[in-house]
Design a protein around this nucleic acid. Structure first.
Ligand code: SF4
Ligand code: SF4
Lengths: 155, 155
DNA sequence: ACATTGAGGACCATTCTAGTCCCCATTAAA
DNA sequence: TTTAATGGGGACTAGAATGGTCCTCAATGT
């Protein structure tokens, strides 16, 4: 279903929560309760976000997590990538692991473009957008055909 | 990685292959060889595409599969949905199965919009786009902020 | 000192995925 | 009418990924 993993979802929820009070340090326990996700799981998520450089932590009393950047400077694609790796629809859309069918499949090139379009879109959505209460408006996406089908000439 | 499943990828490849000769019937064996995917797997994929109404089949000698519509009338989102169900990033982006955090998470609404934007985009990419040899051009996507953060006024 | 809080990583259960196989139904052609 | 081609349906399996838990150690403020 082209579904985000639950962990990514948690990550987004947690990040959004932190983004609403960016100045405070948020302990894992606090976030766990606020969000309704068991502590160990939330902790794991936080660790991943930290490794990705989206959060900084301080241990000890009064410690916790806070954002390394302002919510406007964090994109949802970064959050997703922190949890599940690069946003890529097909195997061939990542640098590594070229799929064996690349030679015969004939769609690799176009898939990569589609994939890139989605990545760019996700780049353009920020944590601030996600966290705000008022629903964000949808971006205008020009139908792909309008630019592509015009110039077909080969086989 | 927000990755398409392999099956969906196969489906796309196979559909693209058929789309290049829409008039002929394509036997599973033929497609299997053309695409380099083992017969049983390709067969399974074809069955799914048929159930979704994207292909029609005829059994017996000279039988095989062909498209039910022209390639321009088939969107890649339909192909994906045929294999892995509705394109939805979060659990709450589908009608059924509301996730338990819906009340507390505070991002459901915005995720749904992001999800819908992607779905719409995928709707706009057709099988013809995918199948053509010349690389498709990317659609222009206006950054979401430009439309969202400016005009916040509603609830 | 000591209570708090994160770091790191092992570990497990369950689900999903990819892939295989078998047997039956239909159709065209010999 | 027989036969060969071809899809339909569905059960089945091995393996990977996912979601989630737990334990112990390190840091830090009071
Ligand atoms: S598009 Fe082609 S090359 Fe890319 S992953 Fe799919 S089959 Fe492999
Ligand atoms: S966004 Fe909120 S409601 Fe939607 S799936 Fe994630 S947690 Fe559940």
């Amino acid at each position: 279903m082209l579904r985000l993993s639950k962990m990514s979802d948690y990550a987004a929820v947690v990040m959004a929560h932190i983004a609403r009070y960016p100045e405070q340090a948020h302990a894992a326990a606090e976030l766990s309760e606020a969000v309704g996700v068991p502590r160990p799981t939330v902790s794991k998520t936080l660790k991943m976000l930290m490794h990705a450089g989206l959060l900084q932590s301080r241990r000890g009393a009064q410690g916790g997590y806070r954002l390394t950047r302002t919510p406007i400077e964090i994109s949802v694609s970064e959050i997703i990538e922190a949890i599940e790796g690069p946003v890529a629809m097909t195997e061939c859309s990542q640098a590594e692991g070229e799929c064996g069918l690349a030679a015969t499949c004939g769609v690799a090139d176009n898939w990569q473009r589609v994939s890139m379009a989605i990545r760019q879109f996700l780049d353009s959505v920020t944590l601030a957008d996600l966290a705000q209460k008022t629903p964000i408006k949808m971006p205008v996406m020009l139908p792909i055909q309008s630019v592509s089908l015009a110039s077909i000439s080969d086989a």
